[in-house]
Design a protein around this nucleic acid. Sequence first.
DNA 1: ACCATTTAAATCGCACACGATTAAATCTAG
DNA 2: CTAGATTTAATCGTGTGCGATTTAAATGGT
Lengths: 148, 148
Amino acid sequence: MSAKFPDLNLDKQLCFSLYAASRQVTRLYQPLLKRHDLTYPQYIVLLILWQTDGLMVKDIGHQSQLKSNTLTPLLKRLEQNGLVSRRRAKDDERQCYIFLTDKGKALESECACIPMEMLGQTDMSVDKLMQLKTLLDEFLQLQENHGG
Amino acid sequence: MSAKFPDLNLDKQLCFSLYAASRQVTRLYQPLLKRHDLTYPQYIVLLILWQTDGLMVKDIGHQSQLKSNTLTPLLKRLEQNGLVSRRRAKDDERQCYIFLTDKGKALESECACIPMEMLGQTDMSVDKLMQLKTLLDEFLQLQENHGG
DNA sequence: ACCATTTAAATCGCACACGATTAAATCTAG
DNA sequence: CTAGATTTAATCGTGTGCGATTTAAATGGT
């Protein structure tokens, strides 16, 4: 069966590996994040805000590559959990600025152990992990020019 | 601001790169798959079935790392679109076997150009793409032993 | 000043993902 | 032979992702 189109398998399998690896990482994070009542995408958004507080939805979208249709409900959940507050800019009512609350700021140090715990769950060398990141970023960079 | 926990940034950013790259690939596939009325996960499942027809839901789950809560509705959609048929095993009514229809089989050759088109959209060298796949697979392998 | 265009966020609809549970069939120990 | 454990899919609820549209506000050219 199959192997009718053998030349094309490389590509198929790279994309599948990427897809599977990404979900695997999300699954690894889940137990660590659940302690703080966070999902993985919520954690991503918080990482961005911990780096720079008071961003617009647009800025968070640019950094996370997520659009408002994903971010708006996600940010509302973070707001409901008391981690961020949403404020309209006075000079431009279209813009919605996101600020960390005290609770949201405090969560940063509570989550400080997560990356270390994640590294502990991987038997891969730091060297190879860095290689992986470099290749992924190169891929992302090339695509950015392409797709817009 | 931030950089309170600088040692931990490597990890955070690797996971973010993985997350972003995976979604980027899905977005790249979408226009190509839409022509055939497929989503990316549906395409993944079809790739598995094109390799080996007549698998149980469990087998597809093992290869795709997806559980029945994702696969059952996905396979029902493929069935509705006339690409697969679902049959219970006579000797064990619990098992549900998935078979490609003629239309489902015919779709394989129609999709044969997709991997090449995908490669065309990436300016990354085949060498680096292979490296990337190798690292991702190594990561997945290590995790398989870990998590179950 | 006026209206078309642009921009930012929100809304809508659909299809994943996945933890948790359920249901039904099969297996197994006693 | 049968009660309980196991296996397999299906179901349920929540939270993404994302294309498409909508709403509201600001901008820009006339």
